[in-house]
Design a protein around this nucleic acid. Structure first.
Lengths: 349, 349
DNA sequence: TGTTAGCACTCGATTTTACCGAGTGCTAAC
DNA sequence: GTTAGCACTCGGTAAAATCGAGTGCTAACA
């Protein structure tokens, strides 16, 4: 409403020291209390030896410059998205509580199982750690190469194409043929598929046989089915932890509903996270990410990489007044542990 | 509170016609309006030509017998769980709106893809259909037999055991060896594993080689890893559709949080659904299912079967004042379509 | 005996009013 | 540039007033 000014009033990216201190004090207190912050409490809390009146004049300026807003006359000030942005940009890296450090270390010392399981568990860890909803994204295998394929026949016309990729993922695809094939033909097709596909990626062009016999038809069919998955974001894995936190952390049923609705759309979540990563930022506040229904949210992301390549990300979603310092530290720590976990001892599992 | 009487006062399972009509009227109206229902509106709506005063005396009786409750003196009546129970038990099978029938038909005419995808899509369909949160459960493959196994090596010590089951599911398990194995040894192990496991189920005892060479050790390791999954509910698939509905359908943040919290625990959801199925009922109201945090919910389930065997279930979760007739009809219809879908044209995919 | 009109009564929900006080903006003095 | 002082605003809370849906009871009625 009134908070969104027509002329985003020249956000000069630097505030003089006192303004900055005041802004920070407002943000910190508002994050803590969820209430508008008045001049006097700022005058006290921040260690600038200055009267509330002075703080007030500064606040007027900060409001004019778009960092603060007033819910109504004669209320305290509330940070705008821009205000949070400044706060976050000037945040010195937070340090994680030792209890949480321990929790993370223990977690990674004990996790077992497939990548998928680890990622899912991690999402739970993150939401426990922060009390916000977490998102863990593992990239698809578009760049991974095929290690092995196998065509298994279920009955005469239904076959299952099972593919193992170099990144340890396994996919299955039904192959429904219009013709019948014998066991022998299926295993021959399987053999040919292996010869054909091993070492290729889903992006590679493959020379399929053009013959008209059953085996060749099977092979063509299988390759087609496998490659059909390519274009979309398919293969991306998304794990959401602690979606129930949404209900505690946002006020207003409507907001809760909207946020939960978004979280249901996995594709959307993936692209949200990837968009943010692409922009090279680690926090998207309010409408910065451009997803309207999430305009009252802040999203924190941290990439997980393997050999220099980004193979996933962890994210946390909360209200714009979230505990940035702690949460960013947690995201950072977990993403590093994940990176190490996959890169270090055991790349794929 | 006052609603839970100490002596569940002899719920005689049969009410005379008039009481039944009144109870039904109360339930119907309360489901519709979410408000306590007064005697006069019942007197009007139900087609018993009787004055509000009479209705009132009957209501007193119904309350004494535990079917109705009063939020406070001088408010209307609200059904108790027992009231809903009676209502549901005496519900003639609802018939689905034709728009919805069409939606279901079109859905099943067009779904493609693996079982998992179909189940996931189905959960979305169900929640769209009913505006409640849906749960689709696919059973594990403890009874399915192995169609094919394959050991793929990622590097000298890490291998991936990929297993295809007769029900079309595919699992993968990391096999971490303490020793190195060559390509040749791995494929030999793979061959032996096939010979050993094909046709067995996860419950079968398998005679593993006791030799001490690399191949034998690999085989033993692989079998161990595969069979380790057995005891738990692992392999069960759960798909939850429309969890954001929780926020619209329940009032009170606290309830929403609790319900979402439950939905996060997949194992819990599975056992909830299976418990209800085991009891042979299709609706669990309030505390009937014994999961305390869900005491303000009703859960509707319908089994999905294949060749007489229950292979899964669909469920819907809403407040006790949910639209039983419509929702039960929807659950019924979808479960039948699913049954047909898997049983009829294509058992596995 | 079951039904009903009549009626006093209850009590939550809604509205009204009053009031408090945190917080503001402004001004004049320092 | 800073600050004390001050009048003013206005949301939040509490108390009071009001409303009315719905009740339980009783006495008359069929």
């Amino acid at each position: 409403m009134a908070r969104r000014l027509k002329t985003p009033p020249q956000p000069k990216r630097n505030l003089d020291a006192r303004k900055a201190t005041i802004l920070e004090a407002v943000v910190v207190e508002h994050i803590d209390t969820a209430q508008p912050v008045g001049s006097s409490s700022v005058a006290q809390s921040a260690d600038l030896a200055v009267s509330p009146a002075t703080v007030r004049t500064e606040m007027v300026a900060l409001e004019r410059e778009g960092y603060l807003a007033q819910p109504h006359t004669s209320a305290g000030r509330v940070p705008t998205d821009l205000g949070y942005r400044y706060f976050v940009d000037h945040l010195e890296a937070g340090i994680l509580g030792s209890a949480q450090q321990k929790q993370i270390r223990e977690f990674f010392a004990h996790v077992r199982g497939e990548v998928e399981d680890v990622l899912e568990q991690t999402s739970i860890l993150l939401s426990h750690l922060t009390n916000y909803t977490s998102v863990v994204v593992g990239s698809g295998h578009s760049h991974a190469s095929v290690l092995s394929v196998q065509l298994v026949n279920l009955d005469a016309r239904h076959h299952l194409l099972v593919t193992v990729f170099s990144d340890g993922t396994v996919t299955k695809h039904s192959v429904l043929a219009t013709f019948e094939a014998s066991h022998v033909e299926v295993s021959e097709a399987s053999r040919q598929l292996n010869a054909l596909l091993i070492g290729t990626t889903l992006e590679s062009k493959v020379q399929v046989p053009s013959r008209h016999d059953v085996v060749a038809k099977l092979v063509r069919e299988a390759v087609a089915v496998l490659h059909a998955e390519m274009p979309t974001l398919e293969g991306e894995q998304v794990y959401i932890g602690g979606s129930s936190r949404v209900a505690e952390v946002f006020e207003g049923v409507e907001t809760v509903r909207k946020v939960l609705g978004i979280l249901e759309e996995e594709l959307l979540v993936v692209s949200l996270v990837e968009d943010i990563l692409d922009k090279g930022i680690s926090v998207a506040i309010g409408s910065e990410h451009g997803y309207e229904p999430l305009s009252s949210c802040a999203v924190i992301v941290a990439p997980v990489s393997l050999e220099g390549e980004t193979i996933g990300a962890v994210g946390l979603l909360g209200p714009t007044r979230m505990k940035y310092r702690e949460v960013m530290a947690a995201a950072e720590a977990v993403s590093q542990h994940l990176t190490r976990h996959f890169g270090g001892d055991d790349p794929r599992a």
